[in-house]
Every structure is written in structure tokens, then in C-alpha cells.
Nucleic acid binder design. Sequence first.
DNA 1: TTGTATGCGTTATCAT
DNA 2: ATGATAACGCATACAA
Lengths: 349, 349
Amino acid sequence: MVKKAATVKAKVSIHDVAREAGVALSTVSNALSGKDNVKESTRKKVQEAADRLGYRVSFVARSLRMQRTFTLGVLLADVSNPSSPDFLRGVEDLADRESCSLLVCNTDGLLDKQIAHMRVLLDRRVDGLVLLSQYCDPPLVRELLNSGTPFVLLQRRSRQHVDDYVGADNHEGITAAIEHLVSFGHKRIGFIRGPTESTTADERLEAYRLAVERLKLDDDPTLVIQGNYQVDGGYRAGREFLSMDKRPTAILAANDMSAIGVMNAASEAGVSIPGDLSLIGLDDIELASYAPINLTTIALQRRDMGTAAATLLMDRIRKKRKKAKQVLFPMKLVVRGSTGPVPVKKKLK
Amino acid sequence: MVKKAATVKAKVSIHDVAREAGVALSTVSNALSGKDNVKESTRKKVQEAADRLGYRVSFVARSLRMQRTFTLGVLLADVSNPSSPDFLRGVEDLADRESCSLLVCNTDGLLDKQIAHMRVLLDRRVDGLVLLSQYCDPPLVRELLNSGTPFVLLQRRSRQHVDDYVGADNHEGITAAIEHLVSFGHKRIGFIRGPTESTTADERLEAYRLAVERLKLDDDPTLVIQGNYQVDGGYRAGREFLSMDKRPTAILAANDMSAIGVMNAASEAGVSIPGDLSLIGLDDIELASYAPINLTTIALQRRDMGTAAATLLMDRIRKKRKKAKQVLFPMKLVVRGSTGPVPVKKKLK
DNA sequence: TTGTATGCGTTATCAT
DNA sequence: ATGATAACGCATACAA
């Protein structure tokens, strides 16, 4: 009596398939994994037996034997941060193509958490690690990174080492943004910088400074305010800027979230954008394009960057490359409605 | 000569530690995994040897042996969707506490992709599956779900089966929102529904209908327009509503993204919110609170829901419960600036 | 309290 | 082309 294909009963292993098909264990393995050293008729026989039994290979056993898990670990500060998921998707795009799965860990930007997660990932014998905007220089982190598991830095460059790295050309982006503002007549441009531990934030600030110097803009130290890449930091910075005696006519925020914070502050203060104040963000997260926000921003190709990072990583895993490689993505200014000419009226005060 | 703690050399296994410490293999295992059947002095000796060698347990081997991977699979349509990451974080919160890691898969809402990912997850022998707004009734999916691996549905209920499930009280939320609008004098309320395959969307629509009936509001079939939980769908629906002869004075969108779409449409049409049109979303994603958006919405406790789902799942994994359990979270109306009184002027036309 | 032996489910090596 | 066998690294039942 013919039975329907079994829907995975108990625990069926390769042994059972071998018995069912009347062949040797190794033949089953070869047949199922598409090796060419098995007769077509045998392969078919094995395949049928496997289906009949509802056999599914165990990645666990395979991983142990092959010393390869087909798993990548991704460390990020917080998936809830609107820019993170796009990077993640990019990584996944490639991982999928390479039959790898992703173990995702949030560190909340905490060093301890990152280290703990790194240990787990390493204990799980991931084939590689993607560090998305995370610590990469602290000694303990470095020690873990030196354990031999390939890794790649995404949006974060080491200050002391040369690693595989994917980032964006911050200089290019910031420069384009400032030139855009200058074309509107702005000369006094505030800058909200990112967290101090971030090399990316450093680069952006540096680019701002260079542009200010080159274009002979107001070079006033109070024009740079510390933010944290978050809305609240942008909000505080925005308030501070708006309360200044000689306040800037434009603000360049180190990322879109900070810019949103400025919007909140401006709205509260009754300052209109771009009427009274021009504003530029960086990231081009989706919400920047929504009509009520309509933020001029410097776009980052996050998904592509994620894919690029995963590509570098896979090369490493396959030992296709020995020396470190850096990939820099261009940044593109996306002009929307948050930038405009310098207000004509003289400011009060 | 004392050497510094080795930073993971070659491949050191439990064997090496045993040799180094001069004890048996099993003693190392017991000592390191904190069993109570090992003398304290021995444990210390073992621990030191392990540290000296830079030994780290292999989760792969352990998983094979224990038939437990301490890994949960999460299936979601798209992490880039602003509401997804919060659920994910909630799941992770609990997973962390339970020493589990998360394998995250995006399905893009495609059945084929979901099935492919489910297979991989099962082949990887995850301890459990979290289905976040995914297909759960198609025969192939059901077959996979029946394979014995515990699972939980998040924000998605089966139409045909009784499963572990965590959702929100859509009826309560929608009702509160409509009553809020009614208190402003609205009687003609448009509704943008979610995708047809979504049971959650069904519940929301049903709740809308019940409220319309109970409160004797305009009951006009054209007042319900199909959306897709995305901005573009909301935009199209918004345009349609705004072009109607007798257009609604308020719109209730099945989620925040759809509401944003309406905002885009309204902005384009020069319709002011809430002056000419009141708008309510659902989700309370972070951006709903930003000043330029300032959306009245029905809040979902996504992170807590994620944690609750993971909790149900872990119970299942530990076989602490046999019969299916449902958890319903309350929904809370968050009144912001997108709702107001019915416009006083007679509409043109 | 410690040690020995076995098996978890594969793939790879080597015969046949 | 196929089959037997040995790892892979660990946890556990049982023996000492």
C-alpha cells in the first residue's frame, strides 16, 4: 500500500535513508549533496527514499564535520535605528545567495554587550563577522577579532589597524552639502556631530571643517555641537543653535535622525524650515522623503554597502584574498524641501 | 616560564584541556558547564588550563550532542519596515536571557521565500520559530509547521488552526480611535485596510465596521479602500479619498505607514491636516511622534509583544505547556496633532 | 568525585 | 560507482 510522503516523522537520519534505499551511508551523502560520483539511477533511488522518509539533512552535524557553519554573525548597535535594517538587508541579500544565514545581535552601543555577543558568535563558530558601526579597537575586541574568524567592518574604520572595510566617502558628501548651502548664500552653517567614538562621525566633522575653511565660511567653534546620531541629541543641539545670539542660517546634521531632532526643536520654537533655517541630514532614510519631513539629505547606499561588506567577507572566508581591502561608496546629495535661501530679513537681536 | 593567556591558537578542543589539566575529558565538560559533581579545586585547575589554552566550547558539537541549538528562527516580511525591528528587539530581549541566538530571515512577503527560509531554519534545527506576520495557513507552510519544531505566531492568527499566538486587541484600538473622531464631530470616516491576506487587517476592518454601525456613522462602501500597509498604498488611497465628491472628513489608516502615505497625498493636494482632514494611524512607530509628522495613532506595544511571543515559544520548547495559548495586548490611542474638529466651512461641491 | 565509552548525524578518506 | 570507517567536539550514562 502506497503511503503519502511522510511529513517528517521521529528523527530520520542519513542511516535510515541508506537502509530504505538499500545503499551505503556515504552513497546517500554523495547522492544528496550532488556529487558526480554516483550513478543517476542510484541518485534517484536515494532521493526517493529520502522523500519517502521525509529526510532533511542536519546542518548541525554537517557543520561539525565540515568545520563550517554557513552562518555569518552581524553585530549592530540597534536594529530599531532606521538606518540599520537597510545595511542588514544588504548583507542578507548576499548571504542568501551564498546559502548563509544570519545571526543578528544588538549591542545597544555597549562595549560589554558587544564583547559578550562576539564571544557567543565565535563559540557558535560563525564563518564570519560583520561589524556594523561597532567598537573595533578596544583590546578585548581586538583579541576576539584576532581569533582567526574573518570579519569586515561596515561604516566603522579602525583607527589603529587595517581591516577589510566598507564605508562611504564622507568628504564628498559633506562637501556637496555645504556647497549646496553656499549656493543659497549661507555662510554661517551649524554642524551637529555624531558620537565621539565614531570614526565616521570624525570624518564627517573633518570634512565640514575643511569645507568651512576652503569656502571661507564663518569659522566659529560654537557652530559645532555634539549630537549622538539620535533624535534627542539633534533636538538638544537644535535648541542650542536656535538660542544663540548669532545663530546659524543653516544646519548640517551628521545624520537624518539628528536632523529630525532639529525639526522638532524648530517646530517648538516656531522657526520655519526652510524659511528661517535650512537643514540637511545624512543617510536618506526612507522617512526623509515623506512629504511632512521632506528633508534635503546626503544619501547613503546602505543596502549596497551591506552587500559589499558581505562580499568582502565571503572572499575572506574562501581565502580568496590575503590583504585588507577597503571599499568606499559615493554619497549623493538629495535636494528636497528643507533647504532654501538665507532669510532676507535681518534677524531680531 | 609563564606565558600570557593564549589568544586562541590553532583549534583547541576539550581533549586538549583535559590533557593540559591532567584530568579526564568528562571532568572538563562537567567542570566548565558548572555541574556540581566536581571538586572546587579541580574546577579551578580545569578553568585555568582552559584559559591558558584559550579554549572555547563549540556550540556546534554541543548542539549535535544535546539535540538543541539554542537558536530561534525569526521570519519576518521585511526588517526595513519600521515596525518590524521593535518586535525583533522584543524577541531578542528574551532570547538573550535564555542564552538563545536569533537567525533572522526576510521573506519580502513572498510565500516561496518564506517556505525556503523555513526549510533552512528547520534544517538548522532551530529550537523554535517565530512567525512575524507571515503566511501560516498554506498547506506547505502547515506541513513544515507540523514537523515538530515549536513555533509561535506574532501579529498573525491562523484562520484554520489554534496555535500559540501573540497579537493585539484590534477591536479595542480601532473603537477608541473612532470614538475619538466622533467626539470631534466626524461622521464620515474613511478606512484604509491592510493587505487581504492579513488576518490582522481583517480584524481591524471588522472593528471599523462594527463601530460605524454602532455609532451610526456614514456607512458607505466607498469609504473602505484597499491599502497594503505601505506608504505607496496609503498614498493611493489618500488620493482616492481626496478626489471623492463626498469625501470623508477623517481617515483611519490600518497602520502608520499608510497614514504617512495619506499625508503625502494631502500635502500634494494642498489639504491641511488636521484642518481639512483628520488622520489616525496605527502602530505608533517612532516617527509618528516627530514634530513634522505628529500623528495621532493607535499604539502597539511591539517590543513587549515580541518578548511575550518568545516567552510562549520558550515554554513550548521546554514542554511546559501542551495546549495553545493566546496573548492579546491592549492598544492605546495616542492623541497627537493630526486629529481635530470637522471643518466648519461647507466643502466645495 | 573522577574516568571510560558511546553516540549525536554528517562528510571525507580510502578501499573495493 | 559504491561501501566501510574514521573523524568532527561535545555531553552523558555508567563504571570505578
